[in-house]
Design a protein around this nucleic acid. Structure first.
Length: 241
DNA sequence: AGCGGTCATATTCATCATAT
DNA sequence: ATATGATGAATATGACCGCT
């Protein structure tokens, strides 16, 4: 009320789209600060009183600029990509299984998490901050526990391990009638069976929507397990028989 | 005794930024 | 300066078997 916040949009846009400003390293707080420095009319008190509104406006402008910059990245990624690489290299490569999950967030949501999203990613990428990320992680420090892709491949000096070939999970089993019918193979190792089974499950949407760990057996599945529904773990269990 | 591979969800953890 | 909200990422879960 004491200030026409919307009129700040051009200034905010200028700040956010400045060549030397990274959307990942900028924060709403910084923008506010810069606004105050450049605009004498914006005293700390004024900002304080309109903080919420200003933040909202910043978030809106951020969205637009961010989108524009994404397009730029598609065409020319040298800048951003380079920087990004640098960060990743300098920091540590946290194994991320999932990439981006969704860029389309509701506007309301986006506005709400503007600050967190921007700065969260920014600081993380920028490194510094925690520096010893792993150490601090503490209990969760152990990254890939099992899926560590240690495909031992190669040599293994002579008669060391054939665990790959005849190993515990490498053993192939003769599939039961309904199972071989369903999977169209006669023998297979258990992990492979599970894999194919899930393929079938997902293909036919046999998961219980409420509890997706629960499999609702269809005719062919019922022929195998003899039940209407089965826990995905139990499924694996029965499979061993 | 434990590791290895396979699956999806649930839970937990830590870290970040803002707000008070 | 601390408390809190929120978010992302990682791990645990459960069962199988054979080998080191």
């Amino acid at each position: 009320m004491s200030y026409d916040v919307p009129s700040l949009e051009p200034e905010i846009r200028a700040i956010l789209s400045a060549p030397d400003v990274d959307l990942r390293t900028i924060s709403a707080k910084r923008v506010r600060k810069q606004l105050m420095e450049e605009n004498s009319a914006l005293t700390p008190d004024v900002v304080k009183e309109n903080k919420e509104e200003i933040d909202t406006l910043i978030s809106q402008v951020f969205e637009e600029v961010s989108r524009a910059q994404q397009d730029s990245e598609d065409e020319d990624d040298t800048q951003t990509n380079k920087r990004k690489n640098h960060e990743d290299a300098g920091e540590e490569a946290p194994v991320k299984k999932k990439k981006k999950s969704g860029q389309e967030e509701s506007d309301a949501k986006l506005a709400r998490k503007l600050s967190n999203e921007i700065n969260g990613r920014a600081t993380r990428g920028a490194g510094k901050s925690r520096s010893n990320g792993t150490a601090k992680k503490g209990g969760r420090a152990k990254k890939s526990v099992t899926t560590v892709d240690s495909d031992d491949d190669g040599d293994e000096e002579g008669g060391k391990k054939k665990r790959r070939g005849g190993g515990g999970f490498g053993k192939e089993y003769n599939l039961s009638e309904p199972l071989s019918t369903l999977l169209q193979v006669e023998k297979m190792s258990r992990p492979q069976v599970v894999k194919n089974l899930w393929e079938h499950i997902k293909g036919n949407g046999l998961q219980n929507p409420n509890n997706k760990r629960e499999i609702i057996c269809d005719a062919s599945m019922k022929a195998i397990f003899n039940v209407d529904k089965i826990d995905m773990f139990q499924m694996n269990k029965v499979l061993g028989q």
